[in-house]
């Protein structure tokens, strides 16, 4: 075959005779190119380096500020929580001392219950013993029982709507709001003939035959009434014709003071 005509020597000879390729440039030009390239290289090496360092610096600053920021907000949250707890316990103390004047404040349960009741939207399920939510003065709202499920604690929550008179609000508290998770706070058996407003006191004239029993149901109703009375600007609630002397810690034979708003939120 013609194709295998070349032996190694032929190829070696051909390779040795490959043309000499010359650099046609003048050495001065070459040197100039090198010089400028060295300079360019230097600046080229520095600029990205500086840029990278600047970027890293910015990143570091951003990262630290973000981390610090999250720390700050976390600690702020904790601080707020703490102050709320403190306020809560103070107001509980205040509430119970207030009751101490009228009653022997034997049990803390009703106070807790009152304290736990939420004034504005819905119940504060979590940390009810810590977060006592202030009562919004002049909101003129009714209070209902809020219970997320059978096993959870009952809590008092205020209505969304306001009422022109305490009379109307109390009526609503017997009927209920229609929301299944919000139930009436006053049992139908608790009846009154009229509601008399006397300056800082509201008098509920209980109907003949209305039997208040010392049960949680009535205690809750009493507290709901107290909170409602407070919303309407009263300091005391008097239950006339009460068949029992005491309901929980409350002395029904005397004027029952409304609970102190623990942490009023403006």
């Amino acid at each position: 075959m013609k194709r295998s005509q070349w032996n190694e020597n032929d190829i070696e000879e051909l390779l040795k005779n490959l043309p000499n390729i010359k650099d046609r440039r003048h050495p001065k030009d070459i040197y100039q190119n090198i010089e400028s390239r060295i300079h360019r290289k230097r600046s080229n090496n520095w600029i990205p380096l500086i840029a990278a360092m600047a970027a890293l610096f910015v990143l570091a600053v951003l990262a630290t500020s973000i981390m610090l920021g999250s720390n700050n907000s976390a600690s702020e949250d904790r601080a707020i929580e703490k102050t709320e707890m403190e306020r809560g316990s103070q107001s509980r103390k205040a509430a119970s001392s207030q009751h101490a004047g009228t009653e022997n404040n034997s049990s803390s349960t009703p106070n807790d219950q009152v304290a736990k009741s939420e004034d504005r939207h819905g119940a504060a399920e979590e940390k009810p013993s810590e977060e006592e939510v202030g009562i919004n003065h002049g909101a003129r709202k009714a209070y209902f029982i809020y219970q997320t499920n059978e096993s959870s604690r009952k809590m008092l929550v205020s209505s969304h709507s306001e009422f022109p008179t305490i009379d109307k609000a109390l009526e609503e508290m017997i009927k209920g709001s229609g929301d299944p998770s919000i139930s009436p706070s006053i049992p139908k058996e608790l009846k009154w003939d009229r509601v008399e407003e006397q300056d800082k006191k509201v008098i509920l004239e209980l109907s003949e035959g209305t039997k208040i029993s010392d049960t949680e149901e009535y205690l809750t109703a009493l507290e709901a009434i107290l909170l409602t009375a407070k919303d309407f600007g009263f300091d005391y609630v008097k239950f006339s014709n009460a068949n029992i002397d005491a309901l929980g810690p409350y002395n029904l034979q005397e004027d029952v003071p409304v609970p102190i708003a623990p942490n009023k939120i403006n």
Partner: peptide, 10 residues
Amino acid sequence: AEDLVQEVYI
């Protein structure tokens, strides 16, 4: 090749 020979010098 021209570029590279300069690179060699550098």
